[in-house]
Design a protein around this nucleic acid. Structure first.
Lengths: 197, 197
DNA sequence: GTCTATAGCTTGATAGAC
DNA sequence: GTCTATCAAGCTATAGAC
């Protein structure tokens, strides 16, 4: 169940520049199609058509459908991290991430849908979400601790609980976005954060 | 897309006692199968086999697959409401609901999965989730207001924001349950509630 | 109200040429 | 690395007998 890229050592995948471009195009297009048709109604064939390759051609790059979709999320996580690292700010991590993804409803829809599907332990994406949840949680805990030390967050609050609540709130708002597109995710997380200061 | 039961007037569906029993058995069994196999891998045929009827027999009662699954959630909402009304308590509504559903992971999995699938406006369950979200939100707002009047909740907090945060937290925790079954949903919501008192 | 039978489609994945 | 061709399997929903 472990993906290739995780088992592989630090060295880069050996691919041509052309192949890399194709991979990126596929990932972008997959997100676009999912946004348009919905996660459940999106087939490999439909993505392939939008890209301009065949379904078999796509599977050459990603092996399975789930691997492709997980890769969309993985790449977006990496991109998010780079964007946030490059431009450090005062706002807590979950708020900044929410702001960064505010105009990517398709990404949030994919995230929520795949997370739900990966609920079953045997699912190909189960390990990805388990690891991600743990990693992001630790990240936020560290952030909260630092701000407690700086006197920015109340010292009597359990950092673990604060992180859990912030991240679950973030996930829940993304889930509710389908029923009410007007929800302001970043503003809501920011409001809760303010209760902790 | 509007379901029969919504368009129909208040009068009861005219079904035999035997038919009613079958309906209930189907709804219970559907939840059991979904818990065992996962939402995405559950077909009408598999539920039918577990019930001991044919797939066509089930569709006679519910029309479509989505209508069946929505009905599972709808009946559970009704059951929840009755249970909470019958035994009124001091704890806020979301905490009591969480406690009541704590031992029903299959229900939470179905809820999260169907909510994600119903994200697309055209989806058969879209209206159900939109209406439900609004209804539950109003319910919690009323609860919060009453407790503010009773001096139990800080009066400076916007009841709307409090309700939004509590409900999104609830949804998010249910979504994360797949990746970490050890999460204590009720305790986490209770902790956040305590920050508002 | 439950059944059998099947229509009618779509799907993910593979084999193998080029 | 991309293609064509195809497979085997699965699905929901419907028609119509009983």
């Amino acid at each position: 169940m472990t993906s290739d890229s995780e088992a592989r050592p630090a060295r880069q995948r050996r691919v041509s520049a052309r192949g890399q471009e194709t991979r990126e195009l596929i990932l972008e297009t997959a997100l676009e199609v999912i946004g348009r048709r919905g996660y459940g109604a999106t087939s490999l064939r439909e993505i392939a058509d939008a890209v301009g390759v065949t379904q078999a051609g796509m599977l050459h790059h990603f092996g399975t459908k789930e691997a492709l979709l997980v890769e969309v999320l993985r790449q977006r996580d990496i991109a998010n991290r780079r964007a946030l690292d490059a431009q450090p700010g005062d706002e807590p991590t979950p708020v900044r991430v929410a702001r960064h993804n505010a105009n990517a409803p398709a990404l949030m829809h994919l995230y929520v849908s795949l997370q739900a599907a990966a609920s079953t332990p045997g699912h190909p994406a189960h390990d990805f979400f388990r690891a991600r949840q743990e990693r992001v949680h630790d990240l936020v805990v560290t952030d909260v601790r630092a701000r407690q030390a700086a006197g920015e967050v109340r010292a009597d609050l359990d950092p673990d609980r604060v992180a859990t609540v912030l991240l679950a709130l973030s996930d829940g708002l993304q889930a509710q976005l389908g029923a009410d597109p007007d929800i302001d995710i970043a503003a809501t997380i920011e409001w809760l954060w303010a209760q902790f200061t």
